[in-house]
Write a protein that binds this DNA or RNA. Structure first.
Lengths: 376, 376
DNA sequence: TCCGTTTGAGTAAACGTTTACTTAAACATA
DNA sequence: TATGTTTAAGTAAACGTTTACTCAAACGGA
């Protein structure tokens, strides 16, 4: 224990600095104690075992230990054995923070996602996590709640933490976001969204998928088809789907009117409301294309409550093929997106930008029991 | 561009080192180029703006800049203004890695969770993320898949990354895990699980909750009650619930036999199978207590397929009150756990271990439409 | 034998912060 | 006028790695 007189000035500074510490009161008291006892002890810092300790114990330089840890050449078998033994004995764990500082690589990637607790996002997330783990990366999640300010904050936090890449799921890229992305040159990949700014992305062809879903209904003999679309202002997930729906019907000679489309926000609740509105605005409706499984299940719920049989009276087709779809009663026919795979692949693309893949992922219709067929 | 002759030795070493690099081929080629051109350029390291640049630009020392950044005293208003202006102009972003190295705090916490894509875990996760964000922490997710080896790997990875705390959700703590937890002195909080090892936790009283759910059915006039339990070996989530179920029936004079209980794994599919088995082993069954909402929905599905009306013929009560419950048809009566709040509070407990809260969180029965009442 | 290469190391300078300690000037008090 | 305190800084040493460069010994070929 080193002894040293602490001057008033130093005590003052110490107290000021200690304010930034979480356990400020304890620290302050400890410092006061040190002052009174005229003792300056560094005993409160609990050092963990570093590469230096290993080096000392094994009688080699830190460079050698580092080389052994990183499988670089430059040591004899004997040295290696000795060092590895010491590492095990001391229970040495390398400090990834120090490593990150010098390597400028943190082996960490950040994920921005509107919501963690919905099945769409969490399925993508599961894929992301899986692939990241396989590549030895950790993933930081940031729940944006579709809040612009929050998103920008997260973006900055991720840059400060020096993540090696960022994945943005289902989020519209504003100019602000893009500016932040552009200035920090950290790779970004978009999943289930797309931007006019030049950013790599992975998503399904929403227009085509909507077109196909609608055509599917037509092929099953439907002609009075309505749509419960997503958030009206959403240029990524609503506009193309509405257009796909409209075009598909136009192409078979059906004119789409306003009464046939209602807008929600992709949620269960908005599915209930949307179905209710649709029933009023378009009473002849026999089949409904819902822009999300959640809304489809909401619709299902309302129809059940009203005693309207699905698919006998009204057919329903969803979008996403989340876990909800197969668990619905009756099981929901829906447009399937390969969410898990999209998540996995986004990591691949992020870590290997050279990899030029087709950003448009294949969709298909998962046929279950909510679409009635008149065709045979 | 500095010029310098590269010796063969150095080239050799450089090439060896570059193997550790992701883009090894490019690096190697670049080095070869340098060799051929007899040029040694450091141009490939893209430096970002550091505190030194700010200091230089503002004509102060780095210490002053640091103090300003951290709101510590020791500078005039004028200096502060000048420095802040420079910070903005240069777009300086502090390096959290360097900060973490010296502070031994990374403002990051790790979350171990069996699965990200189920509603139970993701609801807890949402709470965790929310509270962490409010406290200025980032969260790293680790999907364990209930795999012991993978979990240990994650634990080590988190320690290497020097997270400030770890939250473990729904995972049984093996001796191995505990050893890892014990040696690294990083705080840990358990959510929706519990251990014989002395670790703080937050969960619902499973025994009592199961007891209450069963009693609820009894009070509604049921006497032929079955149970679809979880994984048989699960001492945390199955044993107490089975015991609660058994005790509740015993207490009203009903003897519980093996045929009245079937075991699954909490999943939708196992709910289907469980219901099927139960129907055979205990044909008189009129009400079923399911140990998860997923299984309850599975049961619902099977009953629907068989044309068995819920709740008229068979009543169902679930467990968890995940989002599935309210979206089921009919909406599922279930035992509600405050998952989101448990997630939020786990962060509070982690960051403030002094906080001595009751680890047993309140449950209640969310009454919906799957339990028939004979009582009036 | 001489010279170039390989092997098995070591030394020390980064990486970008924070902060302990120092210092000079200004201010306050007796 | 001394003396002590406060203010507004600066200097330099950490933090725990990686790695550029150095070096001596061993080796190999002509």
């Amino acid at each position: 224990m080193k002894k040293k007189k602490l001057s008033i000035q130093i005590i003052y500074r110490k107290l000021e600095y200690s304010k930034t510490d979480m356990n400020c009161i304890e620290t302050a008291l400890f410092i006061c104690y040190c002052f009174l006892e005229n003792v300056y002890a560094e005993s409160w810092c609990n050092m963990s075992i570093t590469i230096k300790d290993v080096a000392k114990q094994a009688n080699v330089s830190v460079a050698t230990v580092s080389r052994i840890l990183n499988n670089l050449p430059g040591y004899s078998d004997e040295t290696q054995q000795r060092v590895k033994k010491v590492i095990k004995e001391l229970g040495y764990q390398p400090n990834a923070v120090a490593r990150g500082l010098i390597n400028r690589k943190t082996k960490t990637i950040g994920v921005l996602v509107p919501n963690v607790s919905d099945l769409f996002a969490s399925e993508v997330l599961a894929g992301i996590e899986e692939q990241a783990h396989e590549f030895g990366y950790s993933v930081m999640i940031c729940k944006t709640n579709h809040d612009g300010k929050r998103t920008i904050n997260y973006l900055h936090a991720l840059y400060e933490k020096r993540v090696d890449g960022i994945i943005i799921v289902s989020e519209f890229i504003t100019l602000d976001y893009y500016k932040a992305i552009e200035t920090n040159n950290v790779p970004v990949v978009l999943v289930a969204t797309q931007s006019d700014y030049p950013l790599p992305f992975i998503k399904v062809d929403d227009y085509q998928a909507a077109y196909d879903a609608t055509t599917y209904l037509v092929k099953k003999g439907h002609s009075h088809i309505g749509m419960i679309a997503g958030t009206k202002s959403d240029a990524i997930s609503t506009t193309p789907r509405v257009k796909g729906f409209t075009d598909a019907l136009n192409d078979v000679g059906i004119t789409v009117t306003n009464e046939m489309i209602t807008y929600g926000d992709f949620s269960f609740k908005s599915g209930i409301e949307g179905m209710d509105k649709l029933l009023k605005s378009y009473p002849k409706v026999k089949a409904v294309f819902c822009a999300s499984d959640e809304m489809a299940v909401g619709a299902l719920s309302l129809l059940y409550k009203r005693g309207i049989r699905v698919p006998e009276r009204i057919s329903l087709i969803g979008y996403d093929n989340t876990a909800t779809a197969e668990k619905a009663i009756p099981p929901l026919t829906t447009v399937a997106q390969p969410l898990y795979k999209m998540g996995k692949d986004s990591i691949q693309l992020l870590l290997n930008p050279a990899l030029k893949v087709n950003p448009l992922y294949p969709h298909h219709i998962a046929e279950r029991d909510t679409v009635h067929s008149y065709s045979e």
